[in-house]
Amino acid sequence: MNTKKILAIVSVVGIVIASIIGVYVYIKAFTPNTQFSQEEVFVYIPSDANYELVKEIVSPLVADFEKFDFVATSRNYSTNVKSGKFLFKKDMTSFDMVRSLRLNVPVTVAFNNQETLEKLMQRLATQLEPDTTALFEAFTNAAFLEEKRLTSATALTLFIPNTYEFYWNTSAKKMAKKMAKEHTKFWNTERLAKAEALNMTPAQVYTLASIVHKETVKADERPRVAGAYLNRIQQDMPLQADPTIIYALKEKSGDFDQIIKRVGGSNLFVKSPYNTYINKGLPPGPIAMPDISAIDAVLNAEKHNYIYFCADPNRPGYHAFETTYEAHMVNAKKYAEWVTKLGIKL
């Protein structure tokens, strides 16, 4: 057999072997290999995870793990695991899944209406990798609070309610830095100037806004309510804000899930720094996370002479405002009779 024939045979054999290998690799890497019925699922890989842990997490989603393992090993994923949130789609190939495990998907985080920092941390912990303890420590450690000129009571003021994007595996410390940056962005030159004109710090504006927020759900009424509270402050009157009594009662009991619809009687004398009936000025910190509309309502409060207000039975959700105590008591009596008729008790 001459050399040409030998080379021809070797070439044919090589082609056959290459074809077999190609088919083998194709089957391993480029054929559908998922076993879930949903159109897509998210995979969460913890920080510092190794490939063994990844196997445990993705195995229930993979039809033939040997195929997945072949691709993960050949593409060096098994020695270079990434943490985060990753997207798997139905009928993905092993190649697609391994590639997807390198593409961290951002998490949209939204928060509002939280009454305490603890409750906010619990909510965030359901959306991100850090647990409640790690998050709470990041936002309340002494060094961080001192740097941001906050206290444990005003730490909640760092959070401006909005929608933000984080990676699921963002550390608690990095999240604290991110929220501090967003806080600085929100308190721009214009807002800071308006706060200064009120002789208030951003934390104090936020605290008053939390009371305004709880006092009325009507955004168009908030500037008027804010104006009434600012008038009381200017006249050295106690704020006498019912929402602060509710907060004080909840804090004293340790139960922030309870529903308190009406305050009065002995409740008005509950011993608490948050009781604005017996303590003048603002409470130590916010009683809730206010909407941005409430913050801006304080900064752009309506200028008027109103001092008193109470819920208006004739305009549900709104209040009746007065400049004198005598006129206010007339409105207060109407409101008391109305809630009693509805069967709402203290």
Rank of each mutant, 00 (worst) to 15 (best):
V43E: 03
G22W: 04
F65P: 03
S47K: 11
V41I: 14
L61R: 09
E56A: 11
L61T: 00
A49I: 00
P32W: 09
P32F: 05
I27V: 14
S59D: 07
T31K: 02
Y51A: 10
V58N: 11
G22N: 06
V58H: 12
F30Q: 12
P32Q: 07
T34K: 15
I21Q: 10
K28W: 04
Q35W: 03
A49G: 05
K28D: 09
A29N: 01
V25Y: 01
D69T: 07
I21Y: 14
A72N: 06
N33F: 11
A29E: 01
F68S: 03
T73P: 08
S47H: 08
A72I: 03
Y44F: 15
F65W: 13
V54H: 08
P46D: 11
E52A: 09
E40L: 03
P32K: 02
T73K: 14
P46E: 12
V58P: 04
V41N: 09
E39M: 14
F42I: 11
S59L: 13
T34M: 13
T34D: 05
D48C: 00
G22L: 10
F65C: 02
V71G: 06
D48G: 00
T31L: 03
F70T: 14
E39P: 10
N50M: 00
T31M: 01
Y44R: 12
F36K: 02
K28P: 09
F68G: 02
V41R: 12
P32R: 04
D48V: 00
V23S: 08
N33G: 09
E66D: 15
G22K: 02
Y51E: 07
Q38D: 14
T31V: 08
G22R: 02
V71H: 09
V41F: 05
I57L: 05
N33T: 14
D64L: 02
D69E: 13
D64H: 07
F68C: 01
Y51D: 08
A29H: 05
V43C: 04
K67W: 01
V62I: 15
I45N: 04
V25G: 06
A72Q: 03
V62R: 02
D69F: 04
E52P: 04
Y26A: 07
T73Q: 14
Y44E: 13
L61H: 12
V41L: 14
E52Q: 10
E52V: 00
V25W: 00
P60R: 04
K28L: 15
F68T: 01
E56P: 08
D48T: 00
E52W: 00
E40M: 08
V41M: 13
E40S: 12
V71Y: 15
V71S: 05
E56C: 01
K67E: 13
D48W: 08
P32D: 08
F65M: 13
V58L: 07
I21H: 08
D64K: 06
Q35N: 13
V25Q: 00
Q38G: 01
V71M: 07
A29Y: 07
F42S: 11
K28S: 14
A63N: 12
P60K: 05
L61V: 04
E52G: 10
N50L: 00
K67C: 02
V54E: 10
V23M: 14
P46H: 11
Y51K: 00
F65N: 06
E52I: 00
A72P: 07
Q38F: 04
L61Q: 12
Q35D: 12
L53M: 10
Y26T: 03
V41Y: 06
